[in-house]
Amino acid sequence: MESINKSSIRGLVSLWLCAVLLISMVGSLQAAEKQRLFDEAELLSASEQVTIQVELDKISRELSADFIIVTKKKLDGTNIQYFANDFFEKNGNKNGSGAILAISMQERDINFTAFGKIYDDHKRRLDKIRASIGKHLTAKRYHQSFMHFTELVRPSGFFGNFAKVAVTWQPWVIALVVTLVVVGFLAYNHRGEITVGSSTYAVPGAFNLISSEDRYLRTTTTKTKVTSSKSSGGGGGRSSGGSSGKF
């Protein structure tokens, strides 16, 4: 009885190990099968392409989403936002989450569009992510810029976000303004309040506006260019949004 038991257990264990191995192999094979980098503009060397593809696979698996990078030589008049949406639906997925980075070399167009959960995570930073990648592209650091994409789309925890916000200038300015206003108010009241105003000693009803002139002089107009345009819309019930610009 004992020997039968032992051998049958051994058999079960080995079978189970084989199954696990097989499943994981199939899984990795499946993941590797899906192309995520479409370097049609040939910006990367073969070895660089492999590293980017590996990174895209890794985060796609981790976040159960599709991350895609596509580079084009030219778009022939197609709007990059339409192109990116279309390309993601064909090569990524139709209803799930993910993000695409699309680049066209001739127009120097760059687009970053996120879908579903990834969009929800980054919807306020679309322009920033696009601009941050764009900087590397401008400097022709293509490999670095695509690696940067794989880092940027990763959701950061509280401390990661804290560090991100901490380096922006806005909180410093807000803190400075609040401090100046509060300290200024307290210091201003330091000697006491001056409550006498223009009406304190005025004889009621004595003010007489003899004449009043308002003559139109001119109109000045200032125009400031907004560099980015956002488009966001639902595709099959999922939320998505993208940011386009030049690099």
Partner: peptide, 27 residues
């Protein structure tokens, strides 16, 4: 307002003159 890719600010300037009088009591 915003027009296309531009933020536009329009400022109208006016020459302003006010003539008047008042009386004050026990300053």
């Amino acid at each position: 307002w915003r027009s296309g890719d531009y933020n536009i600010t329009e400022t109208q300037h006016y020459y302003v003159k006010r003539v008047g009088s008042s009386a004050y009591d026990k300053i």
